[in-house]
Design a protein around this nucleic acid. Structure first.
Lengths: 356, 356
DNA sequence: ATGAAAGCGCTAACAT
DNA sequence: ATGTTAGCGCTTTCAT
């Protein structure tokens, strides 16, 4: 099933030359001055037409130029434009892991918000590793991005020491602001508090916490929210399972929590990803949700709606956060503020609510 | 919870100027010739040091240059380099939806394979829409990408008419090659055939198919594999549910398949995403998997391992495909071949195998 | 309304 | 081993 073939069609047509700027070798790309020559105008006029400004062009001339562009198959060179204008129309985004549906949703939302403002997004994964994160930031800034969106959720990078050399930066997903940075986050404390309070409202007296490693800014907030809600209800602290922010981590957490002596009757899980694993662990043991164990998780990705039973979640307003982040990172200097969104408790079946 | 603040730390330090090339306004970025001046050498030497060639530099001189670079906080301007060399070290990737774990895994694998070769990846979502896909391709090529990776899985774009102007392109995920294009795919026919044959081996006589809209190259192969396996076993054709490639689509498929008269005892689902929905639909109706209904799905993303019961899957070798795609898109002209990988049947509980 | 030309930062040929 | 310089394609000021 392996056959030899040419590269692809367009390569062999007249305008099939390699577009990229052409080192000394290879044939030239069609440039703005080719178009100018063909249309019998100056290259400045071509620019005015292509960019719709900054100077007006006579309709007849514009038509000739447009024609030349079409005939010649001219495509503006973004590198040259970027060099000249100082703007690449490129934004950098660093997420801990694109495999986590939450960040996939975030990346999608950011990409589309950016596209709406004429910017493309360079997406990178830190894989929860500080060094990788740092390398990515360096690489991105070297590429002259117009702005950086950073989700330091899995690691607390030494943000102050990042050589950002003036690249507008917005932190995402952290609730407490980091000094010197603009951030767009969700109130994880409130989210956790509400979730746990809801569980307690269902009559649970022992609510466990499943949470990740805890190096990121928002992590301790979920823990504090859980703890506060428990104590405000006059209950003793529940058990904690600290496991990686992954499905596997959730599974291990469930095995630990329900493998021993006095298991909890409810669990607040700090991420959907872990909740999937917890659910799997509960099924393994033959425990019913919510009859034997109630669950609420943090994130509210689409996946949480399709588990069995569907998960009651504290939903992060991903699209809103993305839009806010783009607004901020693209805003002209000086008018920046942090924003903190309130997550929304979405009741489904896993907490014990009758929903479906 | 909203407070005003400055932008971020680095902005206020000496090297905190905006890096991007500087339009007429704003202060200059540190350039290679600033470094040259500071180090008392010519700008060519700085280039040689920065790029490790193409000419040798005396160790002492190199040290001085490196020093100047550090002191001045010099960062090469990628736009200028791209303009000059004709290579952006940027690859474009178009996937149908990053929210689908399969494509998230693929994107991750491609990104890391590309990073290993010094390239960054510009990721875009077509959202299964031909026009969006086309827009993205245009946008990417305008950005002078060095290569394009295209996963036309949810739509059959009019590939031949894409104005690729010589950008090396590799198609991903399609099994049958598209004339004039290099492609890296999996043998979906064989995968479907094996899955269905396995189900039949468990004694099932009526195996349904759940599949998506069917506009992409690989789609009909899954259907043909399913059909062929059924017929080779001497069984009558099973029912088909065509629904969107989503969890919701899978749920609808299950409702249709199991809502009426003679339900199947097994289902081959063309994607993990849909399988999640099917599972949810089965649970809703109180049907047990695999006791009442057996399932095998196509993809084998991580998510499939954490459902209940864990899904038996036909796994796409995502990492291998990504590596192959990068190799091809970055290879010098002329030596391209298609590759087709064989998917692997991974037995878990949903098909009726005792696994666990 | 349009033209001429400078120059963004970099690389590499061609000097020395 | 190092210096000088042309020029990548584009935008935009300054002319006309």
């Amino acid at each position: 099933m392996t056959r030899l073939r040419n590269f692809h069609g367009p390569r062999h047509t007249p305008q099939a030359e390699r577009t990229a700027g052409m080192g000394p070798s290879g044939s030239r790309q069609i440039t703005r001055s080719d178009v100018a020559r063909y249309a019998g105008v100056s290259s400045a006029v071509v620019s005015y037409v292509v960019n719709g400004g900054p100077r007006p062009v006579a309709p007849a001339t514009a038509a000739r130029v447009l024609d030349a562009i079409r005939v010649l198959g001219y495509r503006p060179n973004a590198s040259a434009r970027a060099l000249r204008t100082g703007s690449t129309k490129l934004l950098g985004l660093v997420v801990p892991e694109i495999g986590n549906p939450l960040f996939a949703e975030l990346a999608l939302a950011i990409e589309s918000a950016a596209a709406g403002r004429g910017h493309a997004v360079l997406l990178t994964n830190s894989e929860g590793d500080v060094d990788t994160e740092r390398r990515h930031v360096l690489n991105l800034t070297a590429r002259q991005i117009d702005g950086l969106l950073l989700t330091p959720a899995m690691s607390r990078p030494d943000l102050a020491n990042l050589p950002l050399t003036g690249v507008p930066t917005v932190l995402l997903g952290t609730f407490e602001g980091v000094p010197g940075f603009v951030s767009v986050g969700v109130d994880a404390f409130a989210g956790a508090y509400d979730a746990v309070t809801h569980l307690i409202g269902h009559g649970h007296r022992r609510v466990a916490l499943v949470i990740g490693g805890g190096r990121a800014p928002g992590d301790e907030l979920r823990e504090r929210g859980w703890l506060q809600a428990t104590r405000d209800a006059g209950l003793p602290d529940g058990p904690i399972a600290r496991e990686p922010w992954s499905r596997a981590g959730g599974l291990d957490a469930a095995r630990r929590l329900f493998g021993g002596g006095s298991p909890p009757s409810a669990v607040f899980v700090s991420s959907d990803l872990q909740a999937i694993g917890v659910l799997r662990g509960l099924h393994e043991r033959g425990l019913r949700v919510p009859a034997d164990v109630a669950i609420v998780s943090f994130d509210g990705t689409e996946e949480s709606e399709y588990t069995w039973p569907p998960l009651t979640v504290v939903r992060q307003p991903v699209r809103t956060m993305a839009a806010d982040a783009i607004t901020r990172v693209l805003a002209p200097d000086g008018e920046y503020e942090n924003v903190t969104h309130q997550p929304e408790l979405i009741l489904r079946a896993s907490c014990g609510c009758g929903a479906r």
